[in-house]
Design a protein around this nucleic acid. Structure first.
Lengths: 129, 129
DNA sequence: CTTTTTGCAAATCGTTTGCATGGAC
DNA sequence: GTCCATGCAAACGATTTGCAAAAAG
């Protein structure tokens, strides 16, 4: 595997991911990092986001609305997806690891992890109705 | 909303979805239905799969590997995603609806449903290692 | 000097859409 | 006859890739 050299662009992407809690799309990350590096390209953002996800410094969240989201918080937690405004929120729930065992009962294979996503309407969207 | 007329193509798609348990992509559905309707177009397959999902006669499964999958089984159940071969398998688990309540505790919004996907390696891929 | 990273543009992949034609009712 | 569904091809949005130049080590 590649020897990983420092890059200011990657550093900036990491900083932004660490600071935000909005689970941005690659494009949103791009727009923000562009303020510091006006010449950065979207391709570079994608390459770095994928790299960070690979080495475990970020999490890629697959959503049903096309575009993936990225999360700088790698500690295990769950997500809420608002059907109305497509926003992704964090849900703090106690350890649900035991679910892997329940699922693994009688299953012929190895379960390594699970992902739980909740769907519904967020606070703001409820107000608007 | 539209008045839904019968179509042999849609019927064939439904039949295939009901018969298979491999959670096919739209393209896989296309290849199979093409045997019966050589002139069917991929667009028609997509239109019908989305329609079936809308009216609740099929389920669209978002996967981390790009292409969505479709499931003719609409009864609630969970899925296992093999990291190695990208196959999707069914997991029969008792009712986990209570998880919605756990997550809803102290959450400012409405949780309507949840999705649990398990990741790991399937039987066949384990053998090959 | 060697290897990784970047910016850019073109390419790719899955999916959707516009439109004229054909089929259902 | 009126709508809905189809086939086809073009359009789309998100993401990836090839390549030459720039930066890191």
């Amino acid at each position: 595997m590649a020897a990983l050299k420092y890059s200011r662009q990657r550093e900036s992407i990491k900083e932004y991911l660490a600071a935000t809690c909005e689970h941005p799309t690659a494009d949103t990350v791009y727009m923000h990092v562009k303020k510091e590096f006006p010449n950065i390209s979207l391709g570079t953002v994608y390459r770095n986001l994928n790299l960070l996800a690979e080495i475990g410094e970020a999490v890629k969240i697959t959503t049903p609305d096309g575009g993936d989201r990225f999360d700088g918080v790698t500690a295990p937690h769950y997500h809420f997806f608002c059907k109305e405004c497509n926003s992704v929120l964090d849900l703090e729930i106690k350890n649900l690891e035991y679910i892997n065992d329940i699922a693994g009962d009688g299953f012929d294979g190895i379960i390594e992890s699970h992902n739980i996503t909740f769907f519904g309407r967020c606070k703001n969207c409820i107000k608007k109705l």
